[in-house]
Design a protein around this nucleic acid. Structure first.
Length: 571
DNA sequence: AAAAAAC
């Protein structure tokens, strides 16, 4: 591994400046709207409700439509609560974007009671809210000049102390949509509040991976510049620091992965009694079977009566949405674009590689040609990621890096920072990197191994095409992957692109067959692969047994369900 | 439907 790292860190230096210009989020006004997909001649083949571009073209479609915000002056001081009745409202808002150039328009659908008006600029918030001036100044300083769709809708909702389920595509600025209003709601660091707001952390953000938690924390730090906020990235080290009550009581915001926090809760070295804002980022991941009981434990520990909860994700399958909605109180649900649909500006393609052995040659061929670094490559397992990285390096490919959860924290941190600095040209990774990670230069995602769900697919390819940039996503498929091909093809179709006829005409696989396919083991590429994560397997097994027990217990004492919102548009 | 992720 050391040798490999030496190899991969040597060689030609990557030209960072090449990317700097398009690295900034939201600064650009050059949102490219000349997407090939607009010239895509196939809208007639797309079911009406899936035709994203109909809205984008501003033709009359269904009730929901996109209009240009500049055409329609809006009443900026409209009250939040004009409409007092209790029925669900459907509101549709335009994307309040800049006016210089035609921009990507997203359809936004909000549902819930008394939905606050979307904002058009960050400044407009001052009409209704006390925004700490330092916070407002930090926005443009960090490239946030104009709110994205999700930001303009979510910010007033969170500021209105409402629970929120927000679904917005990858790379559309979800992090700021909760960090900014939460900091506004907190008003000032707790250390300056002299006990008026109780003691202990007031805002908590949960994310499924360390890397994502880290990234969110970095965003946080950008926003708090200039004031003495204490924002903490929960880790072993910080957790022990926080065992001191004097330190603990002066913390404002905590970002954590679930299990880390649960460990501290169980050890009673930490409590969440003062938490008034709870965010689940990548909510569907956090609510899936493996995380659910931990998340429930965290939610249960947040005992403050006025707690506000928000869930964010780019995908929210019906099952996860149901759980989320049961957790929320009188929630507002905001969907930007179409649920479970990737961004149209990612150019997606499927590449047939007969079998597993044929993947490596195919990949080598594509890297033998000039390509646009950095490229993110996804594999299905940790050993496959390690050995593929090794294999590429052995084949003379420069600056290949590897990142999976079997590596040490330091190795992982290093891999991320090399990627951020542009030193990695190719990063081979597992699902750890699939969600939320914002590597701004990523031009291309390659699914070396077929994703195991449409959600996984959407999140993986969403590592490119961020903040209005174009991106490319290639997915290898073998004969074994065939049964799942159609579901991915549907996703591609839904995002406005064409598919070869034969894929569209693929029969829907029977449940039996899918089950059978699932049992087929992917051959391990274990030529000289390093076995990582074996020792973890034992611990993991014990852990799963433990959480199973807890689940059973919880199921037994499960209370009656609250009325839930219906889930739509999920497959 | 399944591997990876969380300490």
């Amino acid at each position: 591994m050391e040798a490999f790292q030496l190899l991969s860190s040597g060689g030609v230096k990557f030209n960072k400046t090449k990317y700097e210009k398009d690295v900034r989020l939201f600064t650009k006004n050059k949102l490219t709207t000349k997407k090939r997909s607009l010239s895509n001649p196939s809208p007639d083949e797309i079911p009406a409700e899936l035709d994203f571009f109909k809205y984008a073209r501003n033709s009359t479609g269904k009730r929901k439509h996109i209009d240009s915000s500049s055409d329609r002056p809006r009443d900026k001081k409209r009250r939040f609560d004009e409409d007092k009745d209790d029925t669900d409202q459907e509101t549709e808002g335009p994307e309040p974007q800049g006016t210089e150039k035609p921009q990507m328009k997203h359809k936004v659908t909000s549902r819930g009671n008394n939905i606050p008006e979307a904002i058009e600029t960050f400044d407009h918030l001052r009409n209704e809210h006390q925004i700490p001036s330092q916070l407002l100044q930090n926005l443009p300083k960090n490239g946030y000049n104009h709110p994205t769709s999700i930001q303009s809708h979510a910010i007033p909702i969170i500021l209105g102390s409402r629970d929120l389920a927000a679904i917005s595509p990858t790379g559309t600025g979800k992090t700021l949509s909760y960090l900014f209003p939460i900091m506004t709601a907190l008003q000032a660091p707790i250390s300056s509040m002299k006990g008026e707001v109780g003691f202990g952390v007031r805002a908590l953000v949960i994310a499924p991976t360390r890397e994502l938690a880290h990234q969110i924390h970095n965003e946080c730090l950008k926003l708090v510049q200039g004031r003495k906020w204490r924002t903490i990235l929960f880790s072993k080290a910080t957790a022990s620091t926080l065992a001191d009550k004097n330190v603990r009581d002066k913390v404002d915001i905590i970002i954590s992965t679930p299990l880390r926090l649960v460990a501290s809760l169980r050890a009673e070295t930490f409590d969440l009694r003062n938490v008034r804002h709870l965010v689940l980022d990548e909510a569907d991941r956090l609510l899936d079977a493996e995380f659910l009981s931990q998340v429930q434990e965290i939610v249960a520990a947040c005992t403050h009566p006025n707690i506000q909860k928000a869930v964010f994700s780019a995908t929210l399958p019906a099952g996860a949405e149901k759980i989320a909605m049961e957790m929320l109180r009188d929630p507002i649900r905001v969907v930007v674009g179409l649920k479970d649909t990737p961004l149209p500006l990612i150019q997606q393609s499927l590449t047939y590689v007969a079998d597993d052995q044929s993947k490596l040659p195919s990949l080598l061929t594509s890297f033998a040609k000039p390509y646009n670094p950095p490229v993110l490559v996804f594999t299905s397992t940790q050993p496959r990621a390690s050995s593929l990285a090794e294999e590429l390096t052995l084949n003379g490919i420069q600056n290949v890096d590897c990142l999976h959860a079997g590596m040490t924290k330091k190795e992982r941190d290093d891999a991320v920072s090399r990627m951020r600095q542009g030193q990695s040209w190719i990063l081979i990774s597992t699902e750890v990197m699939a969600r939320g990670m914002d590597f701004k230069g990523v031009r291309e995602v390659i699914n070396y191994d077929f994703p195991t769900s449409v959600q996984s697919y959407i999140h993986r390819i969403g590592r490119t095409g961020r903040a209005g940039q174009e991106g490319k996503a290639v997915t290898f498929f073998t004969d074994e992957d065939a049964p799942f091909l159609k579901s991915i093809a549907n996703v591609i179709l839904q995002s406005g692109q064409t598919m070869p006829d034969w894929i569209i005409k693929l029969p829907k696989p029977s449940k039996m067959k899918r089950k059978a396919m699932g049992k087929v083991k992917r051959p391990e590429m274990v030529n000289n692969a390093r076995k990582i994560g074996r020792q973890d397997a034992i611990r993991k097994r014990d852990m799963i047994a433990g959480s199973k027990r807890r689940e059973a217990k919880q199921a037994a004492e499960k209370k009656q369900k609250s009325p839930m919102m219906d889930a739509d548009n999920s497959s």
